[in-house]
Structure formats: C-alpha cells, structure tokens
C-alpha cells in the first residue's frame, strides 16, 4: 500500500504553490461536502426564517425538543425497533447460508449467494411496488411484519456476503482439530467457528442495522399508511414544508452513520466501506 508510510513520494521539496493548491483542494471539499449538511443544522434551529434575511431571525431548540415527544419520538422508537428485529432476523437467517457456502457444505452454494445479490442488481422500486400488491393479498401491507420482511430482503445481502467472507477467513484446520478430538460438527460450529467469527458478526449487524434505519423505498410502499419510520416521517414533514422538522429528523438519521464512520476509521477494515455506497 502506498501512502501511509511515504505521504509524499516526490523527492524534491514541496513548493509554495503545491501547498496552496492542497489547501485550496481541502477548502473546496470542505465547502462542497460539509456545506449541504451545514444547511440542515441551520434549518433545524431556525425558529423563524423569512426572506430576505440571510440568517434565521430567531434561533432556538424548539424543533429539537420534538424528538422527546409526540410523533417524532414515536417514529424514532418504531425505527429502532424495526432495525433491531431486522438485524437479529437477518443474522440468524444468514448464518447457515453463509457458513454452508463458505465450507462448501451447501450444494449450489455459489448460486444461492448470487440470489442474495439480486435486490442490489435490480431497480428496487418496481419490485417493491409489486411486492406491496402481493403483501396486501397476504395481509402483510401496513404491518410491522411486512416492513421487517421488506427490510430483510435488502439486509440479507449485507449479512450473507460479509458473513461468508468472515467464515472463509477462519481456518478450517481449527475446526478439523475439534472434530478430530471428537466434537460433533454442530458443537464445533457453536463452540469454535461462531466465537471466532464474532467480530464479523458485529460488523454485519451494524451494517444491517443502519441499512434498516435508513431504508425508505420499501417502507414507504409496504408500511403505508400505518408504519411510519424516521425516513418516511422526514419525507412527510418535507412534503408539508415543515423544513425544520425534516432537518431535525435528517440530522437524527445521520447520527449512527457518523458514529460508524469514526469507528471504522479506528477499528474496522476498509473492505466493509464499499457496502455503504448502497445505503
């Protein structure tokens, strides 16, 4: 890997123009990336902001207090509950598939793995619209279970693929040693393989949890009109021109991602990052 050890690979000393260019680059990036997000912060505290004032005339936490009460709190609670249930269900369902595929125990394992990529390969909206029609027939539309199911469709991609990679990384020799010592395959799995895979399990749990928290398309269609998660709540607020409420919700939705970004920088492997492009 280049970069980390030798930050600048040129031998000659950096000129002033290079330094200025780099400073300008970071400044432009800062403006372009933080700028739109800073707008959210400004709107979230703008109690009164009428044209032609360039800044809010009255600033306060009136809209932030809404998190602790009423419909925003309900949406937050529902989002967290759905994300938790989805995470546990997606992990439990994925582990046998991943382990089976990683150890070639599952005939057609590779085909099965491709199947779980489908929801990422196809445009989601038309499929979820069609799923909603089916869910109405099965009395799943507008229910908690229906939303969890649709979140699992997208979430399983993350669990199945990361867990397969994790199980592949665990040496088969450790398992063989346990089996040679008389442990059954099942006992070996629960006592040896699963504990070794724990960091990977945590990583994929975080991925699914955040995916579920941010999921919008499926929830909007399948959850309507009874299951309102935070993203759907934000959309409704924005539709009604409640820009402050929408901005507060947007910032709340960003919290887990920002925490994870900081965590990833310190602890986790960069490979998992690419998965986030799809959130």
């Amino acid at each position: 890997m280049a970069g980390s050890a030798t930050p600048n690979m040129r031998d000659r000393p950096r000129g002033l123009s290079t330094l200025v260019f780099r400073a300008a680059l970071v400044a432009v990036l800062l403006g372009a990336i933080v700028g739109p997000l800073a707008g959210l912060v400004l709107w979230s505290v703008a109690e009164r902001w009428h044209w032609p004032a360039m800044l809010p005339q009255q600033i306060g936490l009136k809209y932030w207090i809404r998190i602790t009460q009423g419909d925003l709190l309900t949406a937050l609670n529902r989002s967290v509950t759905i994300a938790t249930v989805t995470t546990v269900a997606a992990l439990v369902a994925a582990i046998p598939v991943s382990y089976g595929a990683a150890r070639a125990r599952l005939p057609l394992g590779p085909v099965l793995l491709m199947l779980f990529l489908l929801p990422q390969a196809f445009p989601q909206l038309p499929v979820f619209a069609s799923a909603t029609v089916l869910f109405y027939r099965w009395n799943l539309a507008g229910t908690f279970a229906g939303v969890v199911l649709i979140h699992m469709v997208g979430g399983l991609v993350y669990t199945v693929w990361t867990m397969t990679a994790v199980f592949r990384a665990i040496g088969e020799d450790v398992e063989e040693a346990a089996i040679n010592l008389g442990a059954s395959v099942t006992r070996t799995f629960f006592r040896i393989s699963l504990p070794l895979a724990f960091p990977g399990v945590v990583a994929s749990a975080i991925l699914v949890f955040i995916y579920s928290l941010d999921e919008f398309t499926g929830t909007l269609l399948v959850g309507a009109p009874y299951v309102t998660t935070l993203p759907v709540y934000m959309y409704t607020a924005s539709l009604g021109y409640e820009l402050q409420i929408a901005s507060v919700t947007a910032l709340v939705l960003m919290v887990p991602g920002v925490l994870l970004l900081v965590l990833l920088e310190r602890f986790l492997r960069a490979e998992y990052l690419a998965f986030f492009g799809r959130l």
């Binding site: 997000l37 959309y235 947007a250 991602g257 990052l273 492009g277």
Partner: peptide, 20 residues
C-alpha cells in the same frame, strides 16, 4: 471528507440538497 457522503442516507441527501 470524501467518505462522509457514504454514511449519509439517500433521503437525507435529497432533503439537504433541496434546501441547499
């Protein structure tokens, strides 16, 4: 800085860009 948008959900990007 360039990694930040990875962690901002699509809906939030839409809303942030709308007001931006």
């Amino acid at each position: 800085l360039l990694k930040v948008p990875l962690f901002v959900p699509f809906v939030v990007v839409g809303h942030a860009m709308r007001i931006f």
